[in-house]
Design a binder for these strands. Sequence first.
DNA 1: CAGTGAGCGAGCTTCCGCTTGACTT
Length: 770
Amino acid sequence: MIENLVIVESPAKAKTIEKFLGKKFAVRSSMGHIRDLAKKNFGIDLNNNFEPQYIVPDDKKKIVAELKKSVKDSGIVWLASDEDREGEAIAWHLYEVLKLKPDNTRRIVFHEITKEAILNSINNYRGIDRNLVNAQQARRVLDRIVGFELSPVLWKKVKPSLSAGRVQSVAVRLVVEREREIINFTPSSAFRVTGNFHAGKEENSFKADASTRFSTKEKAEKFLDQCLNSEFTVKDITTKPSKKSPAPPFTTSTLQQEASRKLGFSVSQTMTIAQRLYEAGKITYMRTDSVNLSTTAMNSAKKIIDAEYGEKYVNPRNFTTKSKSAQEAHEAIRPTYIENKTIQGNNTEKKLYELIRKRTLASQMSDARLEKTTVTIDVSESKENFIATGEILIFDGFLKVYIESTDDEQEEETKGLLPPVKKEDNLTYSSINAVQRYTSSPPRYTEASLVKKLEELGIGRPSTYAPTISTIQNRGYVIKEDRPGKERKIISLLLENRSIKEQTRNETYGSEKAKLFPDNIGMIVNDFLVEYFDNILDYNFTASIEKEFDDIASGKLNWTDMIGKFYKPFHNQVEETLEVSDYSKGERMLGKDPDSGKPVIARMGRYGPIVQIGENDPESNEKPKYAGLLKGQQLETITLEEAMNLFRLPRKIGTYEGKDMVAAIGRFGPYVRHDSKFYSMAKDIDDPFTITAERAVELIESKRERERNRIIKTFDEEPGLQVLNGRWGPYISFNNKNYRIPRKTDPKNLTLEQCHEIINESSTKKKKKS
DNA sequence: CAGTGAGCGAGCTTCCGCTTGACTT
């Protein structure tokens, strides 16, 4: 018999707390929610005022059984789940499932794991807040209604197994709309003029930009002509102090963003590594929306900064969250022991830990102080000025430890120190350069910048950012990939040695790395949902229902009333959509086939995106011609010309040994078919549209050659064992399993005995590993 | 492994938020 049983959500938390509480307390964890709506039959009784049908999922049965046992053996049960809507609901589900009694059950909360905070919570216990629980039930039920009514509409109207939901569908919408902005973006160009000036010695030259940009080459040229005959005088110098303040400590979302920008981690990678750090006791909880630090943490940060950098660098700060949706059940993400500069662990763990530590330290450090100098240069023959800006760091402050990155790809030119010049000084130029500059489209989202946007909209929670990003990719709505840039010509005019020279050079633009692109099905699903369910896809939908959840939490609104008001019109909308909407294939008319005059249509087919010539007319005997899109081609952007090109495959390219050779593209890329056998083309070398008969024969013969060389050795005694040549060198095939041959061994001279030795050795190795 | 797109019908898919392992390569 233990006097007190404390139940928290996470086992790592349980371990820490147990140390603070001493022998009279046992601490167990629930591993998050222990009950959820049944998946069968909708999980909500629509005829009985939305009564939720809760069940204990299979993977939670064991935990519940263990908790029941612990409850039996103890006196007072302390429900210590997180201090937010979900945490309150977990406490209530525990109360219900474990059949707890009011007189020996106590609800406690703390949002930092320190001894004081926990002891304090024990002295300030309360009961379960039923209003807060009801707000959670409303949230849960509404998400189930939206998800389980919308998804089946997609199964019927677009494709089976698709999904829609309050969070994921908006995430997809953001990506789709951004892509369309980019597709519709037309860059414009202007000439930016930069001069290299100096007052005395040429080594002391500095750069200054013309105060306006010139829309055409002619205008830029005219200005350079004026410069050619001008005198340059310093007209004005101003100096202004400025300061920079550190960013707050990490939340889940900002950690994901910085780990992405600075370390190149994907959102899920960051969370997996952070989870390991948390379980090892190196950092505080990693799923949080709070920027708050405990007083103890602030004090140790202060000590470290003082010791390592001096008192001048110390500036304790309390940050407040900007996010309206924040529930702040935890602290910000910080090292548990900030004095540890690094930790034991693998490389990625070390890097992420050090990032978290630097960010935490910097947040408690002084502002950086700068001085910004602006020099205005008069051009005697023109109304325009040149302007030079310089920035010097007077005091580095937090910058000594940590600089936050930005998403801006346009790297800001580093402004340095300007050489000493005075008002009225005459300046000479060594060169003045007018360079054509294009405007750039809005940037595509990265995983992390999409999380940032969702957080700004108050959509999703720290525990769901990473899973949401995975879901929209797993469903095929969005793909993360690299794209090569395109080339364009840039004109520049260089004024040097009293003459103006025109030059053109190439610039690549629009190359992308690990960016989110909508795929065909994502665009079709999004367009369908936006057309018929614009209210749910609205960026403010979550924010507006959150207000109602708040009213439920404060007791002003009854949760079933709120759901009732939502359900009826929404359900009608679903029924109506099923009736009036057409099957959505994302059809786009591309134009007319120049040969037959029939329409050319791009659309989604059973197995992927296709183009077709002619319409599907059940009354006509003439079937349309079909061709699949190539990888990288999108229904949204494919042109008539590109579509017509696809119909050139499959293409007969000649005959060999009396049989036809046909070039085409299959599921595994381009191939040549000959005598009903398939021969893959070489990646980046062969092109099915242009491949010659000679080259095709080469492919056929080289594969035959490989086939001939495949078998190195067989044994009559044991036909199931063969020594073969594979892609990665010789190997032994035995009972459909493959075994690597040690490098030093010559495969040709292997005996049957030696083969078995290799097989046995590798299987014992595998056992050891597992 | 390597096309295809007809038509029938049974049975399945799906949400968001809390949490960790259990899996394979």
